[in-house]
Simulated scan of single mutants.
Amino acid sequence: MTLPTARSDPFGPPDGLAALRPLSRLAYPDGHLGWLAGGHAVVRVVLSDPRFSSRTELKHPPVPMGQGELGADLVRPGMFVHMDPPGHTRYRGLLTGQFTLRRMRRLEPRIQQLVEAQLDAMKREGPPADLVTAFALPLSSLVICELLGVPYADRERFQQASAVVMGNGSTGEEVMRAYASLYACVGELVAARHTEPADDLVSGLLATDELTDEELINVSLLLLIAGHETTANMVALGAYRLLVDPGQMTKLHGDPAAAVEELLRYLSVVHIGPVRVALEDIELEGEIIRAGESVAVSLPAANHDPGRFENPDRLHFGRHASGHLAFGHGVHQCLGQQLARIELRLAYTALFRRFPGLRLAVPPQEVMMRTDMLVYGVHRLPVAW
């Protein structure tokens, strides 16, 4: 079995994925025979058991990718998501101090300002608008640039390069060029912060005196790409889901925080991977995963597991969606999850408060989905009001 990617429901998991729970054999594009983990409990084990490695050089990608030539860059110092403890632990410890809930809450008024300013600009331009380019992408860029200290003037350069790096259809040469552009952009920021510190994450990490410039650049690159792509696609895809079911709007405004958790679970935009590799023979669900075999984790399958969530294929804002795995699990769980929650809550509530008559400007079947990207969402979302 190869990894299912086709969807009859643009908001639900890929067709056929449910039948592969909790653990199934998976044929990888490069000929490797590994596994797919889709049960909620199994996914938690794979993502938390130290016998499963995150090291890039050991993994086999579950879909064809143009990132093969990028392998050497992904194991450079600072690329901690591709490391195992104890190397990973050092970087994670330094960053945890920069992502405290208190610091994220301090950013909330500024994020609110950015949301309102972006909606002001969209309103001035008038309908119709593409909600991706008019709101979701620039807002996500503004927030992550605010956190790291990246000049917003560099946003277009960053957006274009990160889209190439994250695209399944990108060639190896395209990925390398885009990655070099991102590296140069962040390198310029780090150099500037040596002489002009500011109240941002890059300056905070420099002040620890624990990282080389190369490490700091690579750490920042990871945060830029991860924070930008995932949140932007959640904003747009969540808005699309609400627009085709306007009855959910009242429930959204009634408890925005709970609605965000349910949207995170229901949509699960990180729809391909992560991947782990068994470091030794491991028995799981009555199967033996041999040392060296890759295990692709399906977060959509886990978040729609009926063994964990009742009636999981229904979007239900009254549900207690805690325990979902949209941010992963274990030592690699998303560092920026509290920032993402704040951004999503403010974005959804302000969007539908400011534009109560917001509607799709095209039939739903004409909205193009991002099935060709590592992060799921919409390529464009034409709206009117």
Score class of each variant (00 low, 15 high):
F52Y: 03
L237W: 01
R345I: 04
A191M: 03
A37T: 04
M65D: 04
F80L: 03
P197S: 00
L242H: 06
G97F: 04
L94H: 00
G68Q: 08
L264Q: 08
G204T: 07
L242M: 12
D313Q: 11
R25F: 01
L131G: 06
M176Q: 13
L267Q: 03
L17Q: 11
V331L: 13
T171G: 15
D200T: 03
V331S: 14
L36V: 11
L374G: 15
R44T: 00
E366R: 10
A259I: 07
L284V: 05
L339F: 04
P197F: 01
A257I: 10
I225Q: 10
D73A: 12
V367M: 03
D245V: 08
R314K: 10
T349N: 03
R106L: 13
Y266L: 04
Y28D: 09
L315S: 02
P128E: 06
R319P: 02
G71S: 15
K59C: 00
S294R: 07
D73F: 02
V269P: 10
M369Y: 11
N233C: 12
E69S: 15
V150G: 01
T212Q: 11
G323Y: 09
P364G: 09
G66P: 00
E196F: 01
E229N: 09
S298M: 07
L3I: 12
T100N: 09
N218G: 05
A259G: 07
G39D: 08
M83T: 09
T371N: 14
V277R: 11
E210S: 15
K123D: 14
V362M: 06
G336A: 11
H82R: 13
M176L: 14
E173Q: 13
D213R: 15
L360P: 12
D73V: 06
L20A: 09
D130Y: 07
E214M: 12
Q67Y: 13
Y376G: 11
R319C: 05
V297D: 04
Q118F: 05
A27F: 00
R353W: 14
G292C: 09
V43M: 09
M1C: 11
A178T: 10
G328P: 04
L358V: 06
V115N: 07
G328V: 07
D130P: 01
A259M: 06
P13L: 13
T171D: 05
G126I: 06
R193S: 08
G187N: 13
T371Q: 03
P64S: 00
P77C: 05
S322M: 07
H329V: 01
E285H: 10
L358M: 06
A340R: 05
Y183F: 15
L70Q: 11
M122E: 08
L224H: 03
R380W: 01
P29T: 11
V378Q: 03
L206H: 08
S140H: 12
V375M: 02
E188I: 04
A302M: 11
N218Q: 09
E262V: 11
L346E: 15
G93T: 05
E188T: 06
P256W: 05
E146M: 04
F352I: 05
D372V: 01
G238H: 07
H271K: 02
D130S: 03
G336P: 15
F352S: 02
A184W: 00
L36R: 10
D73Y: 08
M368C: 07
Y240A: 06
W385M: 01
G126L: 08
H82Q: 12
E280N: 12
L119A: 10
M176V: 07
H60R: 12
